[in-house]
């Protein structure tokens, strides 16, 4: 294999060999690492279904060349829950019915986690809507998605306070 990169995927560092420079991060995850949670909806950065966190930031993995991400830390939807315990964003998506078909959901959830990490939106629903606009949902579960982000953000903040206390 002519190409080898080192990636930390969902907390596990791995050396990954592959034979083609064209492989995107999304296709690497889906077709070569059996991490099929991230979805390919457009393959052109136009829908957000492929959103993952790279070095803590949400990006479209379909427009990321795998080779260029040598040394990166990648978090995918598969690495979000702690065992059987769902991440607060995941739980909130279920509680608020923030999805229907579920295809865009891994991207929505990764984007929501990214948004909360960024910390720019606060609890303002208008800012959350804007910040989640890179994730299309053709089922149009947008109302539930915004409610889920608000709720999860609260839950995370409360958990943080408890930890601090």
């Amino acid at each position: 294999m002519p190409f080898c990169i080192s990636l930390t995927v969902n907390g596990v560092k791995r050396n990954i060999e592959f034979d083609d420079p064209r492989v995107t991060l999304l296709d690497l995850l889906r077709e070569r690492l059996d991490l099929t949670g991230a979805k390919k909806g457009c393959d052109r950065g136009q829908c957000g279904a492929c959103t993952v966190l790279v070095n803590g930031r949400r990006i479209n993995s379909c427009l990321a060349l795998a080779l260029s991400h040598d040394g990166a830390e990648v978090l995918t939807i598969e690495g979000v829950a702690q065992g059987e315990a769902l991440h607060p964003v995941q739980a909130a998506f279920i509680a608020h019915d923030g999805f229907q078909c579920g295809f865009c959901t891994p991207g929505q959830i990764m984007s929501a986690i990214g948004l909360i990490n960024e910390g720019h939106a606060g609890d303002d629903p208008e800012r959350i809507r804007e910040a989640m606009s890179g994730n299309l949902c053709r089922c149009a579960a947008y109302i539930g998605i915004v409610e889920a982000v608000q709720d999860a953000q609260k839950a995370i903040a409360e958990a943080g306070r408890r930890d601090a206390a």
């Binding site: 099929t36 991230a38 995941q90 739980a91 998506f93 579920g102 891994p106």
Partner: peptide, 9 residues
Amino acid sequence: DGVLKVTGR
């Protein structure tokens, strides 16, 4: 099917 859908499974 919620848990399957939010965990990518």
